[in-house]
Design a protein around this nucleic acid. Structure first.
Length: 627
DNA sequence: CAGTGAGCGAGCTTCCGCTTGACTT
């Protein structure tokens, strides 16, 4: 009996596969990467063709020792890591660190975990693709060079222990730029006019095809009319991944750290059976999706329920909700389109050129909407909404009520953890396995904070025409309230502005896409990986040296004005203990500058001269003591 | 917890991507 050792990346996979292969095969897992660049120092010999200095990762020493032992006693070692750049590199690192030989090593890949797929893989082995491995080495080393050369510049020019990197710095940039857009946003308002008509005993809701910019215009319009007769879940990214991990480990869903949209044949057949069984043939529309995002590597299947016939699972409420979402998405992706019939009625008003428009929508066939509609208890009136009663052209309608309501334009939305991930995904920056860690890193460095904001009350005008009388009133609403949104901090903004000024190429949203193209060329054997690194590193390193030598410290300093009492300059900047105000300069003994910390709700780029002066006023109320 | 901001120097910090499990809260 020959002895075979198969190595995959994840232990859950190993267990399943061992069942398929049967006797003579032992299946073990590497638990992801086993080696990495040396933790201390740069870990790359720049002078010597970027030779990497790899070390067995401390937490993998045991795994490697065990695999080495098993490999020694095996007749054949099958490297069955994922079929993408990282997976190929894991196989190569295993080959190197387990002291394998080419004669007794085979590389296999499979796209779904089924018995025939595994058997087929075993029957069609290949060798390690060194070009693909080199592409991974280039990726790894470039990230190390960028991170470990930029970070020290920040320690010197801004503050110790800060960090910069290809992914995290761009994530911070997105948040900073969004905040500035919001700061510069000027809200405008206009009046939206809505009318309620009566036809027979049915109501028709219609909106005017024009909005009025002022209260007066809206009122004038109503006067003219007077004369007339006639995405869902509220989890954080980290929480979601914890729940998903739990579902994965208990065998309820497939692998979750993937952005693949590809479903296996097995899955599609299961979905087909579930759809035809539950809803009938006409709800079925089999499709195969292809990914849109750049850099997706398709080593895995799309996230889906392992057993699609199970519509619900046992577990706590978070488990059930996430499973429900995954189930519905999977099933609906293979269902027919919904068919809607749209009707538009145009209603004119005598004495005014503007027209009211009523939109009616009737669901002719629910298609994939069936599984979304099923769960919600829809009330009958809700169903009626959107439908138009039968009307004749030229029919005269009675007006029940016309109202003009003041509406304000909204600034762009701040990012949530989830929307930031979505944006990074669109830009092809970062990978599913790193989105959650990246978000926690930029918060740990205090570049951004996740916060709620209360918002403020705002008045808005309403003009109502009813029973031929015009009524004007002022109502209030809450605006600007935010929940779990990402806000940049002062330090985040200072670091971002510094990096953007000194290293614009790294901060470019297309930087990752550009280097990814080159990694692809390495993988295809078109260019040499050390040449690619050298072409990148030479100008980059020169830039680092120049900046380190010549650029000024970045403190976000702003001169707010001159204190009328002392005649000294009043500044704000980032100091040793965070954002602060500084009155006067110089360091002579009887003429020292005075310092004051900014309050928590104040920011370097928005604080006014008066607010900063206020910080120096004594006595100050710091709180109230309740005795 | 209050309130910090003299100066020097040694030694430290840091990246991204693949996978769980051991730990504390």
């Amino acid at each position: 009996m020959s002895k075979n050792l198969v190595i995959v990346e994840s232990p859950a996979k190993a267990k399943t596969i061992e069942g398929f292969l049967g006797e003579g095969f032992t299946v073990k897992s590497s638990f992801g990467h086993v080696r990495d660049l040396a933790k201390k120092g740069l870990g790359v010999d720049i002078e010597n063709k970027f030779t990497p200095n790899y070390e067995i990762s401390p937490d993998k020493a045991k795994v490697v020792a065990e695999l080495k032992k098993l490999a020694k006693g095996a007749d054949m070692v099958w490297l069955a890591t994922d079929e993408d750049r990282e997976g190929e590199a894991i196989s190569w690192h295993l080959f190197e660190s387990l002291d394998l030989t080419e004669a007794k090593t085979k590389r296999i890949v499979f796209h779904e975990i089924t018995k025939p797929a595994i058997k087929n893989a075993i029957a069609n082995p290949r060798t390690i693709d060194k070009h693909l491995v080199d592409a991974q080495q280039a990726r790894r080393i470039l990230d190390r060079l960028v991170g470990f050369e930029l970070s020290p510049v920040l320690w010197k020019k801004v503050r110790p222990s800060l960090s910069a990197g290809r992914v995290q710095s761009v994530a911070v940039r997105l948040i900073v730029e969004r905040e500035r857009e919001i700061m510069n946003f000027k809200s405008t308002s206009s009046y939206k006019v809505v009318a309620n008509f009566i036809s027979g005993n049915a109501n028709i809701k219609a909106e005017l095809n024009k909005k009025f910019t002022s209260h007066e215009e809206a009122k004038d319009f109503l006067k003219k009319c007077e004369a007339e007769a006639s995405r869902k879940l509220g989890f954080s990214v980290a929480q979601t991944m914890v729940v998903a991990q739990r579902l994965y480990e208990s065998g309820k869903i497939t692998y979750m750290r993937t952005d693949s949209v590809n479903l296996s044949e097995t899955a599609i057949n299961q979905a087909k059976a579930a759809i035809t069984g539950n809803y009938g043939e006409k709800y079925l529309n089999i499709r195969q999706y292809k990914t849109k995002s750049k850099g997706a590597q398709e080593a895995h299947e799309a996230i889906r329920p392992t057993y699609i016939e199970n519509q619900t699972i046992e577990g706590d409420s978070a488990d059930k909700r996430l499973y429900d979402l995954i189930w519905k998405r999977t099933i609906s992706s293979q269902m027919s389109d919904a068919e809607l019939e749209k009707t538009t009625a145009v209603i004119s008003v005598s004495g005014a050129s503007e027209k009211f428009v009523a939109q009616g929508e009737v669901l002719k066939f629910d298609g994939f909407l069936k599984i979304y509609l099923e769960g919600t208890d829809e009330e009958d009136e809700d169903k009626q909404e959107g439908m138009l009663p039968p009307m004749k052209v030229g029919e005269k309608l009675k007006v029940n009520e016309i109202s003009a309501t003041q509406r304000f334009t909204h600034h762009p939305a701040r990012y949530t953890e989830a929307s930031l991930v979505k944006k990074l995904e669109e830009l092809g920056i970062g990978r599913p396995s790193t989105y959650a860690p990246t978000i926690s890193t930029i918060q740990k460095r205090e570049y951004v904070v996740k916060e709620d904001r209360e918002g403020a009350e705002r008045n808005y005008g309403v003009i109502i025409l009813k029973d031929n009388k015009i009524l004007e009133e002022t109502r209030t609403e809450r605006t600007g309230a935010e929940k779990s949104k990402m806000f940049p901090t002062d330090i985040g903004m200072v670091v971002n502005d510094f990096l953007l000024k000194e290293f614009p190429q790294i901060m470019d949203f297309n930087f990752t896409a550009k280097v990814e193209e080159e990694f692809d060329e390495i993988a295809e054997g078109k260019i040499n990986w050390t040449k690619m690194l050298s072409d990148f590193y030479k100008p980059f390193h020169k830039n680092v040296e120049q900046t380190s030598e010549h650029s000024e410290r970045a403190s976000g300093e702003r001169l707010l004005g001159v204190d009328p009492v002392t005649g000294k300059n009043l500044y704000v900047r980032i100091g040793r203990f965070g954002p602060m105000a500084q009155l006067g300069e110089g360091n002579d003994e009887n003429n020292k500058p005075k310092f004051a910390s900014l309050r928590k709700d104040q920011r370097l780029d928005t604080i006014t001269f008066e607010e900063a002066l206020e910080l120096y006023k004594l006595p100050r109320v710091v709180g109230e003591y309740d005795c």
